[in-house]
Design a protein around this nucleic acid. Structure first.
Lengths: 256, 256
DNA sequence: CGAGTGGTTGACTTACATCAATTCCCGTGG
DNA sequence: CCACGGGAATTGATGTAAGTCAACCACTCG
Protein backbone atom coordinates (compact mmCIF):
# COMPACT_ATOMS: atom_id res chain seq x y z
CA UNK A 1 0.00 0.00 0.00
CA UNK A 2 1.29 3.46 -0.79
CA UNK A 3 1.31 6.11 1.86
CA UNK A 4 -1.14 8.31 -0.01
CA UNK A 5 -3.72 5.57 0.07
CA UNK A 6 -3.65 5.17 3.77
CA UNK A 7 -5.91 7.12 6.08
CA UNK A 8 -5.49 6.73 9.78
CA UNK A 9 -8.63 7.00 11.81
CA UNK A 10 -8.37 10.50 13.22
CA UNK A 11 -9.47 9.31 16.61
CA UNK A 12 -9.11 5.56 17.00
CA UNK A 13 -11.00 4.90 20.15
CA UNK A 14 -8.21 3.25 22.03
CA UNK A 15 -5.03 1.29 21.90
CA UNK A 16 -6.55 -2.19 21.73
CA UNK A 17 -5.73 -4.85 24.22
CA UNK A 18 -3.79 -7.27 22.17
CA UNK A 19 -1.09 -5.54 20.12
CA UNK A 20 -1.94 -8.00 17.36
CA UNK A 21 -5.00 -5.94 16.54
CA UNK A 22 -3.18 -2.60 16.73
CA UNK A 23 -4.67 -0.31 14.10
CA UNK A 24 -1.52 1.75 13.84
CA UNK A 25 0.60 -1.10 12.53
CA UNK A 26 -1.57 -1.28 9.48
CA UNK A 27 -0.01 1.94 8.30
CA UNK A 28 2.78 1.81 5.72
CA UNK A 29 4.42 4.54 7.78
CA UNK A 30 5.81 1.84 10.06
CA UNK A 31 8.26 -0.99 9.66
CA UNK A 32 6.80 -4.46 9.92
CA UNK A 33 7.79 -6.50 12.95
CA UNK A 34 8.19 -10.21 13.43
CA UNK A 35 5.64 -12.12 15.44
CA UNK A 36 8.27 -12.66 18.07
CA UNK A 37 8.90 -8.95 18.39
CA UNK A 38 5.21 -8.20 18.50
CA UNK A 39 4.83 -10.56 21.43
CA UNK A 40 7.76 -8.89 23.16
CA UNK A 41 6.17 -5.49 22.68
CA UNK A 42 2.90 -6.86 23.98
CA UNK A 43 4.51 -8.10 27.14
CA UNK A 44 6.56 -4.91 27.49
CA UNK A 45 3.30 -3.00 27.42
CA UNK A 46 1.35 -2.33 30.53
CA UNK A 47 -2.08 -1.21 29.41
CA UNK A 48 -3.11 2.04 27.85
CA UNK A 49 -4.18 5.50 28.85
CA UNK A 50 -6.36 8.33 27.65
CA UNK A 51 -5.54 11.97 28.26
CA UNK A 52 -7.87 14.89 27.59
CA UNK A 53 -6.78 17.80 25.45
CA UNK A 54 -4.82 20.31 27.48
CA UNK A 55 -3.97 17.85 30.24
CA UNK A 56 -0.49 16.63 31.09
CA UNK A 57 0.82 13.27 29.94
CA UNK A 58 4.02 13.81 31.89
CA UNK A 59 4.32 16.57 34.47
CA UNK A 60 7.32 18.80 34.12
CA UNK A 61 9.95 18.35 36.83
CA UNK A 62 8.48 15.06 37.88
CA UNK A 63 10.32 11.95 36.78
CA UNK A 64 7.86 9.57 35.19
CA UNK A 65 8.08 5.87 35.80
CA UNK A 66 6.40 5.21 32.50
CA UNK A 67 7.17 5.33 28.84
CA UNK A 68 4.57 5.77 26.14
CA UNK A 69 3.87 5.30 22.52
CA UNK A 70 1.45 7.90 21.27
CA UNK A 71 -1.34 5.91 19.72
CA UNK A 72 -3.67 8.64 18.50
CA UNK A 73 -3.95 12.40 18.73
CA UNK A 74 -1.45 15.23 19.01
CA UNK A 75 0.80 16.13 21.93
CA UNK A 76 3.90 18.21 22.51
CA UNK A 77 6.97 18.33 24.72
CA UNK A 78 7.86 21.58 26.47
CA UNK A 79 9.94 23.22 29.15
CA UNK A 80 9.24 26.31 31.19
CA UNK A 81 11.58 28.78 32.86
CA UNK A 82 10.91 29.61 36.46
CA UNK A 83 9.08 32.81 35.56
CA UNK A 84 6.70 30.93 33.30
CA UNK A 85 8.17 31.54 29.85
CA UNK A 86 7.47 28.36 27.93
CA UNK A 87 9.30 26.74 25.06
CA UNK A 88 7.76 23.92 23.06
CA UNK A 89 10.53 21.49 22.18
CA UNK A 90 8.81 19.22 19.70
CA UNK A 91 5.45 17.92 18.61
CA UNK A 92 4.30 14.34 18.98
CA UNK A 93 2.22 12.33 16.57
CA UNK A 94 0.95 8.77 16.48
CA UNK A 95 3.85 6.36 16.60
CA UNK A 96 6.15 8.63 18.57
CA UNK A 97 7.86 7.10 21.55
CA UNK A 98 7.75 9.25 24.66
CA UNK A 99 10.06 9.40 27.60
CA UNK A 100 13.42 7.91 26.70
CA UNK A 101 15.01 11.30 27.27
CA UNK A 102 14.15 10.93 30.93
CA UNK A 103 16.00 7.68 31.30
CA UNK A 104 17.99 8.07 34.49
CA UNK A 105 16.17 11.29 34.80
CA UNK A 106 17.83 13.84 37.00
CA UNK A 107 14.82 15.96 37.73
CA UNK A 108 15.25 18.83 35.30
CA UNK A 109 13.10 17.34 32.60
CA UNK A 110 10.49 18.33 30.07
CA UNK A 111 6.72 18.08 30.31
CA UNK A 112 4.40 16.46 27.81
CA UNK A 113 0.91 17.78 27.22
CA UNK A 114 -1.94 16.49 25.11
CA UNK A 115 -3.10 18.90 22.42
CA UNK A 116 -6.11 16.78 21.47
CA UNK A 117 -7.71 13.86 23.14
CA UNK A 118 -4.86 11.41 23.15
CA UNK A 119 -4.54 7.68 23.62
CA UNK A 120 -1.29 6.08 24.63
CA UNK A 121 0.27 2.68 25.01
CA UNK A 122 1.94 2.53 28.40
CA UNK A 123 5.23 0.82 29.23
CA UNK A 124 6.84 0.58 32.64
CA UNK A 125 10.25 2.15 32.58
CA UNK A 126 11.89 -0.62 34.53
CA UNK A 127 11.12 -3.06 31.77
CA UNK A 128 13.15 -1.04 29.30
CA UNK A 129 16.47 -2.63 30.04
CA UNK A 130 15.02 -6.16 30.03
CA UNK A 131 13.54 -5.34 26.65
CA UNK A 132 16.92 -4.28 25.31
CA UNK A 133 18.43 -7.48 26.66
CA UNK A 134 15.89 -9.87 25.28
CA UNK A 135 15.11 -7.99 22.06
CA UNK A 136 18.18 -6.08 20.90
CA UNK A 137 16.41 -5.29 17.66
CA UNK A 138 13.74 -3.36 19.52
CA UNK A 139 16.43 -1.64 21.54
CA UNK A 140 17.99 -0.58 18.29
CA UNK A 141 14.62 0.71 17.11
CA UNK A 142 14.19 2.76 20.24
CA UNK A 143 17.60 4.29 19.70
CA UNK A 144 16.57 5.06 16.16
CA UNK A 145 13.44 6.82 17.35
CA UNK A 146 15.41 8.78 19.92
CA UNK A 147 17.88 9.84 17.26
CA UNK A 148 15.09 10.98 14.96
CA UNK A 149 13.53 12.92 17.77
CA UNK A 150 16.82 14.66 18.40
CA UNK A 151 17.11 15.63 14.77
CA UNK A 152 13.77 17.36 15.01
CA UNK A 153 14.92 19.30 18.05
CA UNK A 154 18.08 20.20 16.14
CA UNK A 155 15.91 21.69 13.42
CA UNK A 156 13.85 23.63 15.90
CA UNK A 157 17.00 24.98 17.46
CA UNK A 158 18.16 26.30 14.10
CA UNK A 159 14.75 27.89 13.73
CA UNK A 160 14.72 29.77 17.00
CA UNK A 161 18.40 30.58 16.80
CA UNK A 162 18.77 31.74 13.24
CA UNK A 163 15.50 32.19 11.36
CA UNK A 164 13.41 35.37 11.29
CA UNK A 165 9.69 35.48 11.98
CA UNK A 166 8.44 34.68 8.47
CA UNK A 167 10.92 31.87 8.08
CA UNK A 168 10.00 30.43 11.45
CA UNK A 169 6.32 30.27 10.73
CA UNK A 170 6.87 28.89 7.23
CA UNK A 171 9.17 26.21 8.59
CA UNK A 172 6.79 25.21 11.34
CA UNK A 173 3.75 24.97 9.11
CA UNK A 174 5.54 22.81 6.58
CA UNK A 175 7.03 20.63 9.24
CA UNK A 176 3.76 19.92 10.97
CA UNK A 177 1.86 19.50 7.76
CA UNK A 178 4.33 17.00 6.36
CA UNK A 179 4.45 15.02 9.55
CA UNK A 180 0.68 14.82 9.79
CA UNK A 181 0.55 13.79 6.16
CA UNK A 182 2.98 10.96 6.81
CA UNK A 183 0.95 9.81 9.75
CA UNK A 184 -2.02 9.48 7.41
CA UNK A 185 -3.92 12.37 8.95
CA UNK A 186 -4.57 14.27 5.73
CA UNK A 187 -8.17 14.63 4.49
CA UNK A 188 -8.70 16.31 1.11
CA UNK A 189 -5.59 18.39 1.50
CA UNK A 190 -6.40 19.45 5.04
CA UNK A 191 -4.79 18.22 8.25
CA UNK A 192 -6.06 18.63 11.76
CA UNK A 193 -4.20 21.46 13.47
CA UNK A 194 -5.17 21.55 17.12
CA UNK A 195 -2.85 24.36 18.19
CA UNK A 196 -3.66 27.94 19.01
CA UNK A 197 -1.37 30.84 18.31
CA UNK A 198 0.12 30.66 21.76
CA UNK A 199 1.33 27.16 21.00
CA UNK A 200 2.88 28.31 17.76
CA UNK A 201 4.50 31.28 19.47
CA UNK A 202 5.95 29.03 22.15
CA UNK A 203 7.27 26.63 19.56
CA UNK A 204 9.08 29.16 17.43
CA UNK A 205 10.20 31.52 20.17
CA UNK A 206 8.17 34.59 19.25
CA UNK A 207 5.61 36.63 21.13
CA UNK A 208 1.96 35.85 20.67
CA UNK A 209 1.21 39.13 18.94
CA UNK A 210 4.06 38.92 16.51
CA UNK A 211 3.17 35.33 15.70
CA UNK A 212 -0.33 36.47 14.87
CA UNK A 213 0.86 39.22 12.58
CA UNK A 214 3.26 36.95 10.77
CA UNK A 215 0.66 34.23 10.35
CA UNK A 216 -1.79 36.78 8.99
CA UNK A 217 0.80 38.04 6.55
CA UNK A 218 1.51 34.59 5.17
CA UNK A 219 -2.16 33.86 4.92
CA UNK A 220 -2.78 37.10 3.03
CA UNK A 221 -0.04 36.07 0.64
CA UNK A 222 -2.08 32.96 -0.02
CA UNK A 223 0.52 30.47 1.14
CA UNK A 224 -1.70 28.58 3.56
CA UNK A 225 -5.09 28.48 5.21
CA UNK A 226 -5.67 27.90 8.88
CA UNK A 227 -9.26 27.61 9.88
CA UNK A 228 -11.30 25.97 12.57
CA UNK A 229 -8.46 23.78 13.72
CA UNK A 230 -7.51 22.58 10.25
CA UNK A 231 -4.52 23.49 8.14
CA UNK A 232 -4.16 23.52 4.39
CA UNK A 233 -0.96 24.30 2.52
CA UNK A 234 -1.57 26.18 -0.70
CA UNK A 235 1.99 26.87 -1.80
CA UNK A 236 4.26 24.16 -0.41
CA UNK A 237 7.21 25.14 -2.63
CA UNK A 238 6.98 28.76 -1.60
CA UNK A 239 6.80 27.88 2.08
CA UNK A 240 9.68 25.45 1.84
CA UNK A 241 11.83 27.98 0.08
CA UNK A 242 10.87 30.73 2.46
CA UNK A 243 11.64 28.60 5.48
CA UNK A 244 14.74 27.05 3.87
CA UNK A 245 13.36 23.78 5.12
CA UNK A 246 12.78 20.72 2.99
CA UNK A 247 11.40 17.53 4.43
CA UNK A 248 13.19 14.43 3.26
CA UNK A 249 11.38 11.76 1.27
CA UNK A 250 9.21 9.45 3.24
CA UNK A 251 10.71 6.45 4.96
CA UNK A 252 8.99 4.05 7.31
CA UNK A 253 9.94 4.19 10.97
CA UNK A 254 9.94 1.67 13.76
CA UNK A 255 6.90 1.42 15.97
CA UNK A 256 7.18 0.17 19.53
CA UNK B 1 38.35 8.44 43.62
CA UNK B 2 36.31 11.59 43.85
CA UNK B 3 35.70 13.68 40.80
CA UNK B 4 37.50 16.69 42.20
CA UNK B 5 40.67 14.67 42.56
CA UNK B 6 40.78 13.62 38.97
CA UNK B 7 42.56 15.61 36.34
CA UNK B 8 42.34 14.51 32.77
CA UNK B 9 45.39 15.15 30.67
CA UNK B 10 44.32 18.20 28.70
CA UNK B 11 45.75 16.75 25.53
CA UNK B 12 46.29 13.03 25.78
CA UNK B 13 48.32 12.29 22.72
CA UNK B 14 46.06 9.71 21.25
CA UNK B 15 43.44 7.10 21.78
CA UNK B 16 45.74 4.16 22.52
CA UNK B 17 45.63 1.00 20.54
CA UNK B 18 44.25 -1.45 23.02
CA UNK B 19 41.21 -0.06 24.81
CA UNK B 20 42.54 -1.71 27.93
CA UNK B 21 45.00 1.10 28.31
CA UNK B 22 42.47 3.84 27.60
CA UNK B 23 43.31 6.84 29.74
CA UNK B 24 39.76 8.11 29.71
CA UNK B 25 38.36 5.11 31.55
CA UNK B 26 40.47 6.00 34.55
CA UNK B 27 38.15 8.91 35.15
CA UNK B 28 35.41 8.59 37.77
CA UNK B 29 33.22 10.43 35.30
CA UNK B 30 32.54 7.14 33.55
CA UNK B 31 30.82 3.93 34.50
CA UNK B 32 33.05 0.91 34.80
CA UNK B 33 32.65 -1.81 32.19
CA UNK B 34 33.14 -5.52 32.39
CA UNK B 35 36.10 -7.11 30.70
CA UNK B 36 33.72 -8.69 28.24
CA UNK B 37 32.23 -5.34 27.30
CA UNK B 38 35.64 -3.78 27.00
CA UNK B 39 36.63 -6.46 24.52
CA UNK B 40 33.44 -5.86 22.58
CA UNK B 41 34.18 -2.16 22.42
CA UNK B 42 37.70 -2.93 21.32
CA UNK B 43 36.48 -5.05 18.46
CA UNK B 44 33.76 -2.55 17.60
CA UNK B 45 36.46 0.06 17.28
CA UNK B 46 38.28 0.62 14.05
CA UNK B 47 41.32 2.68 14.91
CA UNK B 48 41.54 6.31 15.82
CA UNK B 49 41.76 9.69 14.21
CA UNK B 50 43.21 13.11 14.86
CA UNK B 51 41.56 16.30 13.64
CA UNK B 52 43.13 19.74 13.76
CA UNK B 53 41.35 22.66 15.37
CA UNK B 54 38.90 24.25 12.98
CA UNK B 55 38.73 21.22 10.71
CA UNK B 56 35.64 19.09 10.16
CA UNK B 57 35.13 15.77 11.90
CA UNK B 58 31.93 15.19 9.93
CA UNK B 59 31.06 17.30 6.92
CA UNK B 60 27.62 18.81 6.95
CA UNK B 61 25.22 17.28 4.41
CA UNK B 62 27.44 14.28 3.92
CA UNK B 63 26.37 11.06 5.57
CA UNK B 64 29.28 9.66 7.50
CA UNK B 65 29.94 5.96 7.56
CA UNK B 66 31.66 6.30 10.89
CA UNK B 67 30.79 6.87 14.49
CA UNK B 68 33.17 8.37 17.01
CA UNK B 69 33.87 8.72 20.65
CA UNK B 70 35.58 11.99 21.37
CA UNK B 71 38.73 11.02 23.20
CA UNK B 72 40.33 14.37 23.87
CA UNK B 73 39.72 17.99 22.99
CA UNK B 74 36.63 20.08 22.26
CA UNK B 75 34.32 19.91 19.27
CA UNK B 76 30.82 21.07 18.40
CA UNK B 77 27.86 20.08 16.26
CA UNK B 78 26.28 22.67 13.98
CA UNK B 79 23.94 23.28 11.09
CA UNK B 80 23.93 26.06 8.55
CA UNK B 81 21.12 27.58 6.53
CA UNK B 82 21.65 27.91 2.83
CA UNK B 83 22.66 31.56 3.11
CA UNK B 84 25.36 30.71 5.62
CA UNK B 85 23.71 31.52 8.93
CA UNK B 86 25.11 28.99 11.37
CA UNK B 87 23.64 27.51 14.52
CA UNK B 88 25.75 25.52 16.93
CA UNK B 89 23.62 22.70 18.29
CA UNK B 90 25.77 21.38 21.08
CA UNK B 91 29.30 21.11 22.32
CA UNK B 92 31.26 17.90 22.57
CA UNK B 93 33.71 16.87 25.24
CA UNK B 94 35.77 13.78 25.94
CA UNK B 95 33.52 10.76 26.29
CA UNK B 96 30.80 12.07 23.99
CA UNK B 97 29.57 9.67 21.37
CA UNK B 98 29.24 11.22 17.93
CA UNK B 99 27.03 10.30 15.05
CA UNK B 100 24.07 8.25 16.26
CA UNK B 101 21.75 11.02 15.12
CA UNK B 102 22.77 10.22 11.58
CA UNK B 103 21.74 6.62 11.81
CA UNK B 104 19.71 5.99 8.72
CA UNK B 105 20.74 9.43 7.78
CA UNK B 106 18.61 11.10 5.18
CA UNK B 107 21.06 13.69 4.02
CA UNK B 108 19.94 16.77 5.92
CA UNK B 109 22.33 16.33 8.78
CA UNK B 110 24.56 18.33 11.06
CA UNK B 111 28.27 18.92 10.79
CA UNK B 112 30.85 18.36 13.50
CA UNK B 113 33.92 20.55 13.78
CA UNK B 114 36.95 20.34 16.03
CA UNK B 115 37.46 23.37 18.24
CA UNK B 116 40.86 22.23 19.48
CA UNK B 117 43.14 19.51 18.33
CA UNK B 118 40.93 16.52 18.78
CA UNK B 119 41.50 12.79 18.99
CA UNK B 120 38.75 10.31 18.32
CA UNK B 121 38.04 6.61 18.57
CA UNK B 122 36.54 5.48 15.30
CA UNK B 123 33.75 2.94 14.85
CA UNK B 124 32.33 1.75 11.56
CA UNK B 125 28.64 2.46 11.40
CA UNK B 126 27.74 -0.92 10.01
CA UNK B 127 28.99 -2.59 13.15
CA UNK B 128 26.49 -0.69 15.26
CA UNK B 129 23.65 -3.13 14.89
CA UNK B 130 25.88 -6.16 15.48
CA UNK B 131 27.07 -4.45 18.65
CA UNK B 132 23.50 -3.99 19.84
CA UNK B 133 22.82 -7.61 19.11
CA UNK B 134 25.82 -9.07 20.85
CA UNK B 135 26.05 -6.53 23.65
CA UNK B 136 22.62 -5.22 24.52
CA UNK B 137 24.07 -3.47 27.54
CA UNK B 138 26.25 -1.34 25.31
CA UNK B 139 23.28 -0.67 23.08
CA UNK B 140 21.44 0.55 26.13
CA UNK B 141 24.40 2.75 27.00
CA UNK B 142 24.40 4.27 23.55
CA UNK B 143 20.72 5.05 23.88
CA UNK B 144 21.46 6.65 27.21
CA UNK B 145 24.12 8.84 25.66
CA UNK B 146 21.81 9.81 22.83
CA UNK B 147 19.09 10.71 25.32
CA UNK B 148 21.48 12.85 27.32
CA UNK B 149 22.60 14.59 24.17
CA UNK B 150 19.00 15.38 23.32
CA UNK B 151 18.43 16.86 26.74
CA UNK B 152 21.28 19.24 26.11
CA UNK B 153 19.77 20.30 22.82
CA UNK B 154 16.44 20.77 24.60
CA UNK B 155 18.15 23.17 26.98
CA UNK B 156 19.74 25.07 24.14
CA UNK B 157 16.39 25.36 22.46
CA UNK B 158 14.90 26.94 25.56
CA UNK B 159 17.83 29.32 25.58
CA UNK B 160 17.49 30.54 22.03
CA UNK B 161 13.72 30.52 22.16
CA UNK B 162 13.02 32.15 25.47
CA UNK B 163 16.06 33.66 27.16
CA UNK B 164 17.36 37.20 26.64
CA UNK B 165 20.96 38.06 25.87
CA UNK B 166 22.29 38.19 29.43
CA UNK B 167 20.52 34.99 30.36
CA UNK B 168 21.81 33.25 27.27
CA UNK B 169 25.41 34.09 27.94
CA UNK B 170 25.12 33.23 31.62
CA UNK B 171 23.55 29.89 30.81
CA UNK B 172 26.15 29.02 28.22
CA UNK B 173 29.11 29.89 30.40
CA UNK B 174 27.81 27.86 33.31
CA UNK B 175 26.93 24.96 31.09
CA UNK B 176 30.31 24.74 29.45
CA UNK B 177 32.19 25.35 32.65
CA UNK B 178 30.34 22.62 34.51
CA UNK B 179 30.75 20.14 31.72
CA UNK B 180 34.45 20.81 31.44
CA UNK B 181 34.76 20.48 35.18
CA UNK B 182 33.08 17.11 35.10
CA UNK B 183 35.37 15.96 32.37
CA UNK B 184 38.28 16.73 34.66
CA UNK B 185 39.49 19.67 32.61
CA UNK B 186 39.59 22.22 35.41
CA UNK B 187 42.98 23.62 36.49
CA UNK B 188 43.02 25.93 39.51
CA UNK B 189 39.52 27.11 38.84
CA UNK B 190 40.15 27.70 35.14
CA UNK B 191 38.95 25.60 32.25
CA UNK B 192 40.15 25.67 28.71
CA UNK B 193 37.73 27.66 26.57
CA UNK B 194 38.71 27.30 22.95
CA UNK B 195 35.85 29.28 21.44
CA UNK B 196 35.83 32.74 20.00
CA UNK B 197 32.92 35.12 20.23
CA UNK B 198 31.58 33.99 16.88
CA UNK B 199 31.20 30.48 18.28
CA UNK B 200 29.34 31.79 21.30
CA UNK B 201 27.11 33.95 19.13
CA UNK B 202 26.29 31.00 16.91
CA UNK B 203 25.52 28.83 19.90
CA UNK B 204 23.11 31.22 21.60
CA UNK B 205 21.54 32.73 18.52
CA UNK B 206 22.80 36.29 18.84
CA UNK B 207 24.85 38.51 16.58
CA UNK B 208 28.58 38.72 17.09
CA UNK B 209 28.49 42.33 18.21
CA UNK B 210 25.71 41.88 20.69
CA UNK B 211 27.40 38.81 22.10
CA UNK B 212 30.52 40.85 22.63
CA UNK B 213 28.66 43.60 24.45
CA UNK B 214 26.82 41.18 26.67
CA UNK B 215 29.97 39.26 27.51
CA UNK B 216 31.71 42.50 28.34
CA UNK B 217 28.87 43.53 30.58
CA UNK B 218 28.94 40.31 32.57
CA UNK B 219 32.67 40.50 32.86
CA UNK B 220 32.49 44.10 34.13
CA UNK B 221 30.00 42.89 36.74
CA UNK B 222 32.72 40.50 37.87
CA UNK B 223 30.77 37.31 37.22
CA UNK B 224 33.41 35.59 35.13
CA UNK B 225 36.78 35.98 33.44
CA UNK B 226 37.55 34.93 29.92
CA UNK B 227 41.14 35.32 28.92
CA UNK B 228 43.56 33.75 26.53
CA UNK B 229 41.33 30.83 25.82
CA UNK B 230 40.60 30.05 29.47
CA UNK B 231 37.44 30.60 31.44
CA UNK B 232 37.02 31.19 35.13
CA UNK B 233 33.70 31.51 36.90
CA UNK B 234 33.77 34.02 39.73
CA UNK B 235 30.13 34.03 40.77
CA UNK B 236 28.60 30.67 39.92
CA UNK B 237 25.47 31.30 42.01
CA UNK B 238 24.83 34.62 40.34
CA UNK B 239 25.33 33.20 36.88
CA UNK B 240 23.09 30.22 37.59
CA UNK B 241 20.36 32.45 38.92
CA UNK B 242 20.70 34.90 36.09
CA UNK B 243 20.52 32.15 33.51
CA UNK B 244 17.85 30.24 35.43
CA UNK B 245 19.99 27.21 34.75
CA UNK B 246 21.19 24.78 37.36
CA UNK B 247 23.31 21.80 36.48
CA UNK B 248 22.29 18.64 38.20
CA UNK B 249 24.61 16.83 40.59
CA UNK B 250 27.30 14.80 39.01
CA UNK B 251 26.57 11.27 37.86
CA UNK B 252 28.87 8.99 35.94
CA UNK B 253 28.01 8.28 32.33
CA UNK B 254 28.65 5.36 30.03
CA UNK B 255 31.71 5.44 27.83
CA UNK B 256 31.82 3.56 24.56
C1' DC C 1 56.52 45.97 9.10
C1' DG C 2 52.25 44.64 6.98
C1' DA C 3 48.45 41.36 6.85
C1' DG C 4 45.19 38.77 9.19
C1' DT C 5 42.29 37.46 12.87
C1' DG C 6 39.58 38.42 16.81
C1' DG C 7 37.95 41.74 20.21
C1' DT C 8 35.81 46.31 21.37
C1' DT C 9 33.01 50.31 20.90
C1' DG C 10 29.77 53.93 19.31
C1' DA C 11 26.05 55.48 16.12
C1' DC C 12 22.18 54.20 13.93
C1' DT C 13 18.39 50.99 12.37
C1' DT C 14 14.99 47.49 12.78
C1' DA C 15 12.58 43.45 13.97
C1' DC C 16 10.21 42.03 17.41
C1' DA C 17 8.04 42.83 22.16
C1' DT C 18 4.72 45.08 24.90
C1' DC C 19 0.48 47.45 25.78
C1' DA C 20 -4.14 48.20 25.02
C1' DA C 21 -8.24 47.92 22.54
C1' DT C 22 -11.58 45.75 19.73
C1' DT C 23 -13.73 41.90 17.45
C1' DC C 24 -14.96 37.22 16.76
C1' DC C 25 -16.64 33.02 18.30
C1' DC C 26 -19.06 29.89 20.98
C1' DG C 27 -21.27 28.01 24.85
C1' DT C 28 -24.48 28.96 28.71
C1' DG C 29 -28.31 30.32 31.02
C1' DG C 30 -32.19 33.46 31.68
C1' DC D 1 -34.35 34.22 21.36
C1' DC D 2 -31.01 37.06 23.16
C1' DA D 3 -27.79 38.85 26.81
C1' DC D 4 -23.70 37.64 28.77
C1' DG D 5 -18.96 36.01 29.64
C1' DG D 6 -14.56 34.12 28.45
C1' DG D 7 -11.08 32.66 25.48
C1' DA D 8 -8.75 33.35 21.20
C1' DA D 9 -7.70 36.21 17.22
C1' DT D 10 -6.72 40.73 15.43
C1' DT D 11 -4.90 45.30 15.06
C1' DG D 12 -2.65 49.81 15.93
C1' DA D 13 0.54 52.58 18.75
C1' DT D 14 4.64 52.71 21.06
C1' DG D 15 8.95 50.90 23.26
C1' DT D 16 13.26 48.44 23.28
C1' DA D 17 16.48 44.67 22.76
C1' DA D 18 19.17 43.21 19.51
C1' DG D 19 20.98 43.72 14.65
C1' DT D 20 23.93 46.22 11.40
C1' DC D 21 27.54 49.26 10.01
C1' DA D 22 31.87 51.06 10.50
C1' DA D 23 35.65 52.12 12.90
C1' DC D 24 39.60 51.17 15.69
C1' DC D 25 42.56 48.36 18.68
C1' DA D 26 45.48 44.41 20.20
C1' DC D 27 47.83 40.39 19.01
C1' DT D 28 50.26 37.11 16.41
C1' DC D 29 52.59 35.44 12.62
C1' DG D 30 55.57 35.51 8.69
Amino acid sequence: MKLEDYSAPVYPPHCPHPCESCELRGSPAFNPVSLDELRAIQSFRDGSRVVEAGRPVIEEHRASSQLFTLYSGWAFRFKTLSDGRRQILSFLLPGDFIGVQDEFSDGRTHGVEAATLVTLCVFPRDKLWPLFRSQPRLGYDITWLAAREEKMVDDNLVTTGRRNAMERVAMLLMHLYRRAQRAGLERDGWVEFPFNQQHIADAIGLSLVHTNKTLRRLQRLGLHKLDGGWLRILEPKALETLGDYFERPFRPTPLI
